[in-house]
Design a protein around this nucleic acid. Structure first.
Lengths: 200, 200
DNA sequence: CCGTTTATGTAGTGATCGATACATAAACCA
DNA sequence: TGGTTTATGTATCGATCACTACATAAACGG
């Protein structure tokens, strides 16, 4: 069963990747349709036919962002043998991911929308939900540390997770302000210096 | 020597305060002239006659913000007897300042502009300069700690200052995401848990 | 009173925003 | 071939953006 009608003349996946780069660089509000269509190499009717709207395009872009940039940040949470190494790996991978040559600095989930307005409300809510989910992932890794007998049973894992997520979000702003990888790694290590006190 | 011409019909200081609240709540880009004039109770020609432009109005607003909200955040840097208490007081005052009832959550200097575009470039640069200056203030307080013989002479004060500034910037995003004062205070204390390791 | 100066309210400016109407093009099936 | 379906390019939509031209109003000094 072949496709009906005139075939699409551009690569949808490639166009989505270009859109992701624009959103990552400029944020949702500052990425204009002109910016997007220019980077994607198409006209706006093609964009709307293929993706529906600017908001729907962003939603697809954020999923792609999670697939492309997420693994390197989150892998240590499952691969590291201890909770401490998991969190440390998460922060150090963040430092590396936020300062990749040729890619925008900082995190699209954190910087995509910060100041809410009528037009970006849906996108803003989606990003906030992802941030809350990420904090929950950290907490669950800490809870696993308790289950493994590695951490004290009465440890306030929500509090510790909130702290390390906060550091990561601060690192996003630092990256946008021009901090290099070495600086971000030092910040990550500084945050880990609190570990023994926090879990002890 | 009295003023010439028709006298201004509104309170300039009060109008500036209202503008500050709008900028603080919505950020520079999302604060439209309609938002501003509505909150200030004036028409746009009066705004331009009194303040010059949206950017000039923001510049005045950020100075006012520093005068109104700055002291409670920075006072401990001069009043606290030790460097540790100074930094701790700075973070705990931040937690309180970012969650004042009836005021916008988070910091206007951090959240005012994050995604740069053609229109906000000047404002963005100004805010980034303030953030860099704030980091320098922290560093200098730590340097004073060295001069007082309280901290080791070879302590990397720039690194420590960068860490605590990063935590504060993360707290701004947390506040925007709805974190309450208790949560922010716990984050501040968590950051201070790294202190002995960082300076030791 | 008159002339000057500054502020105000109305009503716009051109530019840009996200999103579309419409005619045409290019594929399919019968 | 003709009919259907989908994509494309042009050209634009109304809304909103920051900003201002202009006539009028309200104060001053003379």
């Amino acid at each position: 069963m072949a496709e009906r009608g005139r075939p699409r003349a551009f690569d949808r996946d490639l166009a989505l990747r270009r859109a992701m780069e624009v959103f990552w660089t400029k944020g949702y509000d500052n990425a204009s349709l002109a910016d997007l269509t220019s980077a994607m190499g198409i006209n706006s009717p093609s964009l709307y036919a293929a993706f529906g709207s600017k908001e729907a395009l962003f939603n697809e872009a954020i999923v792609l962002y999670g697939k492309v940039e997420g693994p390197q940040i989150w892998d240590s949470l499952t691969s590291a043998p201890t909770a401490k190494e998991a969190i440390s790996g998460y922060l150090r991978a963040t430092a590396a991911t936020f300062t990749q040559p040729g890619k925008p600095a900082g995190c699209m989930v954190i910087l995509g929308v910060l100041n809410i307005n009528d037009a970006n409300e849906g996108v803003s809510r989606a990003l906030r939900a992802i941030r809350a989910e990420n904090r929950e992932v950290l907490k669950q890794r800490l809870d696993e540390g308790i289950a493994a007998g590695e951490l004290a049973a009465d440890l306030d894992t929500a509090k510790v997770a909130a702290f390390y997520v906060t550091v990561q979000q601060g690192m996003s702003i630092q990256a946008r302000d021009g901090a290099n990888r070495e600086t971000l790694l030092a910040i990550a290590d500084s945050a880990m210096a609190a570990w023994e006190q926090l879990v002890g």
